[in-house]
Design a protein around this nucleic acid. Structure first.
Lengths: 224, 224
DNA sequence: TCAAAAGTGTTCGTCTTACACCCATGA
DNA sequence: TCATGGGTGTAAGACGAACACTTTTGA
């Protein structure tokens, strides 16, 4: 390969992450208001240019930290976007990730900024986004919905464990569907993603719910 | 973004495709012998550098055509690889694709070359590969196995239609598993990927098998 | 002791799995 | 008419969907 060939000179790589959360049964995504050209003032997903000395996932994590203060989040690479005109500055392709996190963990950072430059948006009330981030977001949500069933993607949402009713609400929010309490529990347990702790949590005036924890490792299932 | 910042200057993009075929019950992958540095003389997957004026999939297709003469092949993007040191020349990331094709369609090109520079290798007899192509190949095969069930990826293998027994042999080769004839047929028909033509094909001394065709469009299925 | 929400078990129907028989062809 | 392999049906088991009752807590 000839490094100086004009045909592939001046290319760059974005690492973009759609960070989701669920608050009171509403699925939301974290958006950042751009402070530079291009797309100054527009809302975009978390992300930026990949450095030469970092792997893709590390770059995505660094961008997340730089722009939101979030340090530990599980992210999943799902697709790479490369429309020729997706960036007006130069030829950029974007490696897309998504992750889910407890929204309480990012509030701190937002309050230290003088003006709001990051906020959670319900997925059905997304403003126009810069670059091709609307496309990335749409596909990220689809992938989240596909993969949520057979993985522990939601682990970051519940670092201290979760009860079945809580978990069900999150699944219902993300998949936009209602489930039967008893069957949901059975399905969850059969998927082998979570395990019983012997603790339980109290709500007001109700029977306490058992707390479960996401397992570290999960094995893939075969369809055939 | 500052275009001249050293941190992200001099990046490039590979588009790499693992092209699979099945011959006599053996899953094989197409490898190319490199004629330039780096990795001169090593076997690698089909691919190369993305041009600035083409989309990712178009670039992958162009590389396939340039190096094998194959014009129409369905390819699927599955993962992007970005280890910092994956290319010794400069910082390159590789967008990975895979596809399946009838091996008869590439023989022509191989014979026009003065020396063999492309060949099919059984997936359990792969030589050492240049770059990180061993990793890409491993993951491509995994993805092929995952997605083969619910998609018409195999369409390119059978442009003129396929019989159930043929199709079963291909599934068994790729998934490395045996299936019951009758249940395989039922499963295939229920997946709605193929449709009956009213033709049938003859073998030697046997009852002729019905010919089926892959449908154009397929709809995703929900697990929940 | 009552309301509210959590936990558990059982039945029904559907889809997958295992398996036996019949059919079309060339020799 | 026989061997070979392709096509079809059916019964048993596994899995998911629908549903009723008991338990724990705070008021």
């Amino acid at each position: 390969m000839d490094v100086k060939n004009k045909r592939y000179k001046g290319q760059g790589i974005h690492v973009i992450t759609a960070i989701f959360t669920v608050e009171q049964g509403i699925t939301k995504v974290l958006l950042i208001k751009r402070k530079n050209e291009p797309f100054l003032g527009d809302w975009v997903l978390t992300g930026g240019a990949l450095y030469n000395d970092e792997d893709l996932e590390d770059g995505a994590r660094r961008e997340i930290f730089d722009k939101t203060g979030i340090t530990d989040i599980d992210i999943t690479q799902f697709k790479t976007f490369g429309r020729v005109d997706r960036s007006p500055v130069m030829r950029m392709i974007a490696v897309g990730f998504f992750g889910v996190i407890d929204s309480k963990r990012v509030k701190v950072l937002r309050e230290t900024e003088s003006t709001t430059n990051a906020d959670w948006f319900p997925i059905d009330k997304i403003p126009p986004l810069g670059y091709d981030h609307e496309e990335i977001l749409t596909e990220a949500l689809k992938e989240l919905q596909k993969r949520i069933v057979n993985s522990n993607i939601l682990k970051s949402l519940f670092p201290d464990g979760v009860t079945m009713p809580e978990l069900q609400k999150v699944y219902e929010a993300i998949l936009n569907k209602k489930f039967d309490r008893r069957n949901f529990r059975k399905k969850m347990l059969s998927l082998n993603l979570i395990e019983d702790t012997n603790k339980s949590e109290q709500f007001e005036g109700n029977r306490p719910a058992k707390i479960y924890k996401f397992k570290k490792k999960i094995e893939d299932k075969n369809i055939f």
